[in-house]
Design a protein around this nucleic acid. Structure first.
Length: 275
DNA sequence: CTTTCGTCCTGACTGC
DNA sequence: TGCAGTCAGGACGAAA
């Protein structure tokens, strides 16, 4: 799935297409994704103007002029694609946002782990999807002190902890490995032991990796493309993820990227430069 | 409370 | 060529 940089890229790609425009028609080509669409989703959306699109954690939020907010999550395989209305549908185009100017946005998601719902913008912070979320890693409030407090006493591995959206949002499987590699911290390290000095290194590393990934338009693996259809290219800058068996850039003797499994998910790291 | 595990779903790829 | 098995960027709820 899109992690933070991919979702951010998608939001930026949607802004010029949807912000300030009216959704004249919302076509739901099935009745649910991961969760059912609200019964009044279509009625509450059609005819409304999109005032603002922004990212919250890994969610895309579209603030409407009615005071409602459309919330979309791309799951593992979701895409938002801007296409001409004449284009034939793909089998996995599930939701169509029609703006009435000949183009439309199609929410395509083969695995259907994504979601789309609607809720009053004013109550966003306390919404079920959002109320348990930790800080955004790019926000000023995400400090070494804040991360330390969240990790304190945690027995789980730091890699697993970084995927926990209550600790910090937006960091997924790729960027967890990349951030720990840049910080020189072993993914196997007990999360609680990262609180303190190591958090001072890890927090800037997370911010740096995410910023660079956003600048590159995200990482295009199988699913991620920008709404325009352009690919992201951060996958070429990966230093750990997907590099099993390759030499680590640290250059130490016999330093090779290893793949291990943590919580049923792949982790990539260098045992020489990550401790 | 924290942590682990199974689950949702399709498609791409590997190896026989 | 076909087919079975494995893996994939997420996150939830149940269970321990």
């Amino acid at each position: 799935m899109p992690e933070l940089p991919e979702v951010e890229t998608v939001c930026r790609g949607l802004q010029p297409v949807l912000e300030g425009r009216r959704i004249v028609r919302l076509t739901l080509r099935r009745k649910d994704l991961r969760i059912p669409f609200p019964k009044d989703l279509k009625a509450r959306t059609e005819g409304r103007k999109v005032e603002r699109i922004f990212r919250k954690a890994k969610y895309i939020v579209m603030a409407l002029d009615s005071g409602d907010a459309l919330i979309a999550h791309l799951g593992m395989s979701g895409r938002m694609q801007v296409v001409k209305s004449a284009m034939p549908f793909d089998a996995h185009d599930h939701v169509i946002f029609v703006t009435g100017d000949g183009a439309e946005v199609r929410f395509n998601d083969p695995r259907r782990f994504g979601l789309l719902t609607i809720t009053p913008l004013a109550g966003l912070e306390s919404h079920k999807l959002f109320r348990h979320l930790g800080p955004d890693p790019l926000a000023d409030s995400f400090t070494p002190e804040a991360l330390s407090a969240a990790l304190k006493g945690r027995k789980t591995a730091i890699k697993t902890a970084l995927l926990d959206q209550r600790i910090v949002v937006g960091v997924g499987n790729i960027y967890a490995s990349e951030s720990l590699h840049l910080a020189g911290i072993s993914p196997k390290r007990t999360a609680g032991t990262v609180a303190g000095e190591r958090a001072r290194v890890l927090v800037p590393a997370i911010k740096e990796v995410l910023r660079q990934a956003i600048a590159a338009g995200g990482s295009s693996l199988r699913d991620h493309v920008q709404p325009s259809g352009e690919l992201g290219y951060f996958q070429h800058a990966w230093k750990a993820y997907g590099r099993e068996g390759e030499a680590c850039r640290c250059g130490a003797d016999k330093a090779v990227i290893k793949r291990i499994v943590q919580g049923a998910r792949s982790t990539f790291f260098c045992a020489k430069c990550q401790r």
